[in-house]
Design a protein around this nucleic acid. Structure first.
Lengths: 204, 204
DNA sequence: TGATTTTTTGAGCAAATAATCTAAAATTAA
DNA sequence: TTAATTTTAGATTATTTGCTCAAAAAATCA
């Protein structure tokens, strides 16, 4: 067993709470005092465990990647019906657009904020996780092509990047309070993009 | 003529500088001292003219809307070739993705940051200008339909919103430092979306 | 038990922050 | 000139910020 006094807090719970705060208000607008109040951690406990505010932010981003990003990858890979999997990915964009505790996207926050000054920039985490999702998305599309669900000449990287970029757009537009119909139209466009390449279902 | 001592600074120049700072670093990361140093304004001059930091931010957003958003609307409306105008709109997304002083998008920053607590929230300005662009984009697409450039059954609001959402996504993805090929693919997807509805040019 | 390790507690610090006070400087109108 | 008006100047203030110091509390191991 571990030697010293046992921690009073659940680490993942702390990270989830911190991630929610950073997602809602942005890194700069969340103070360490806010973090302590919301997570229940004493100040020194926070610094002892996470080093500093940026350290907690980085770990919160990582936790978010594991709990919000990776499951999407898993869902893409798990579904035997590759095209249906991608469609499912598109359909759940609405979640990123909402304002509630489940809404919004921390990676969009992190990327919009940027911070390329430091070598260990926090948005590097967001970038890395997004790159993995991008890869998985392309792989699933390739699988759909292989299964004959999408046309053989489908530009797989092009479609994958278009969908992913659209997903980020949905997060911004939703967060910005633009009309909900914009989100619906974006989702519809994502699905239509897939339909366009679906074999044997061409339009016109 | 105005009565008192004449201002030493050019107002628009100050707003442009402020907008560039806010765009690059975000509202919270820019201090009033930064703003004074970069704009050359004395602290008291800044507060005398703009009230407070938020006031300067709001006016900078407005200035950005006039100098970066509205010209896009004008370009859409001015071009007799409606479809070409929309294509031009899509092609210049790359600019929003860049990192230099011309790169990035202040409205994306403002929307991602959010701030729906206040009634006169700063992102309301971004929302209002974006709404105008959205309207103009739809109008131009409708014009293209009327001119027979796009199919009569084109879902105009759907296409407009898809393009605009994609544009926001490009800004985030570019700012986040994702591969440049993502931007290229997003632009290509925007153009392909138009091609898909172009009359007499169906694929497959 | 006593020594060791780790976490918690609570107070507090230096620096940066947005914003203000008072007064001088530069212009126009009378 | 004189008065009125507006902008600039420099110093300052109260608050908030991220962060640290010293010591007590709770566990394990000898």
């Amino acid at each position: 067993m571990s030697r010293g006094r046992p921690p009073k807090f659940d680490e993942n719970q702390v990270l989830d709470t911190a991630a929610a705060l950073f997602k809602r208000d942005g890194y700069d607008a969340v103070s360490v005092a806010d973090l302590c109040r919301e997570t229940g951690l004493a100040m020194q406990s926070l610094y002892h465990r996470f080093g500093d505010k940026a350290g907690l932010y980085r770990e919160a981003l990582d936790r978010y990647g594991r709990t919000a990003n990776d499951p999407q990858i898993t869902a893409l890979e798990a579904d035997d019906d590759a095209l249906a999997a991608v469609r499912g990915f598109v359909r759940q964009w609405k979640r990123h657009a909402g304002a509630g505790p489940d809404g919004g996207c921390l990676f969009t926050q992190a990327m919009a904020r940027g911070d390329r000054t430091q070598p260990e920039a926090p948005d590097a985490t967001a970038r890395a996780y997004t790159a993995r999702l991008r890869k998985a998305l392309a792989a699933t599309l390739r699988r759909a092509v292989g299964a004959g669900q999408l046309a053989a000449d489908t530009d797989v990287p092009g479609v994958a990047d278009a969908l992913l970029t659209l997903a980020f757009g949905v997060a911004v537009v939703g967060r910005g309070g633009m009309p909900a119909s914009m989100i619906d139209h974006a989702v519809a466009a994502g699905l239509a993009l897939l339909d366009r390449h679906a074999s044997g279902a061409g339009r016109g």
